[in-house]
């Protein structure tokens, strides 16, 4: 983990340049521009309001359903955008990989940081909604960096594994959208965790996204500290994922160019 951080620090200028130019390039020749960062979670929220709240009558822990779903959706979008751009990133940049050396994890982190920028923009709308629904901000919001960090560690670990394995077997990038869809339904994005029968709750909470999403909801909406037990599971899994992922990545990195 220390090596990972020093690598990033040493190449911070490159990282900065890659993130920045990617964002710039993405919004060139696009009418909506930076607004696209909000479109995905917003669209999903509107659909879910209709289906889950109006048609299926899901409970939403006494909060207005739109804000209940949106809190989770921006976190989910952060995960799904990161993974779907980071996992194929090595393969997509193969021409660069073959010619210039810099730590390959830069690609992964670049994509995660870009998704993080989107997340920041989408969060502005969340604050707007809080104001609209007159939900006050609490001191608990100070936990936000902690939860976000856990999510970032987890996503990085997962992306490292996904990206390096995808170099050898492209099935990973192919299968990713399906996995993300199933995973989203298995996370408390559109429904509260209270809907899960108690006897399944333990197995359910092994999903690291459960602790993270519930954490966001408690600090944004309830104004209480996140549930320690749930978040501890997430943290443990995130660190484990990262350690294993980075080890695998480092081994794979040596042979990437021989395989592609």
């Amino acid at each position: 983990m220390i090596q990972f951080c020093t690598n990033l620090y040493r190449h911070r200028e490159l990282l900065h340049e890659l993130v920045w130019s990617n964002i710039k390039a993405r919004y060139k020749q696009s009418i909506l521009g930076i607004g696209w960062a909000i479109v995905q979670p917003l669209a999903l929220m509107l659909v879910s309001v209709f289906i889950f709240s109006q048609v299926a009558k899901f409970p939403s822990d006494h909060f207005p359903y739109p804000i209940f779903a949106y809190t989770a959706l921006i976190a989910w979008t952060l995960l799904s955008t990161s993974l779907s751009s980071a996992v194929p990133s090595l393969v997509n940049n193969i021409s660069l990989l073959r010619k210039v050396y810099f730590p390959r994890e830069i690609f992964i982190v670049t994509n995660i940081l870009i998704a993080l920028v989107d997340y920041g923009i989408a969060a502005v709308l969340l604050v707007g909604m809080l104001v609209f629904y007159r939900i006050p901000l609490h001191a608990a919001i100070l936990y936000l960096p902690v939860i976000l960090l856990i999510q970032l560690i987890f996503m990085t670990g997962l992306s490292l594994v996904g990206a390096i394995v995808n170099v050898a077997f492209r099935d990973i990038a192919r299968g990713l959208p399906i996995l993300l869809q199933i995973w989203m339904l298995a996370s408390p994005v559109f429904y509260p965790i209270s809907m899960i029968p108690p006897q399944w709750r333990f197995w359910y909470s092994l999903n690291p996204m459960v602790g993270i999403i519930e954490g966001y909801r408690s600090i944004w909406l309830d104004g209480t500290a996140p549930a320690v037990d749930l978040l501890a599971i997430s943290l443990l899994e995130a660190v484990l994922m990262f350690v294993v992922g980075y080890a695998l990545f480092c081994r794979g990195e040596e042979v990437v160019n021989d395989i592609v």
Binding site: E13, L14, H16, E17, L18, L96, V100
Partner: peptide, 11 residues
């Protein structure tokens, strides 16, 4: 600036 950074130059 982008390619320069890739080639290892600072801003």
């Amino acid at each position: 600036f982008l390619y320069g950074a890739i080639m290892g130059m600072s801003r």
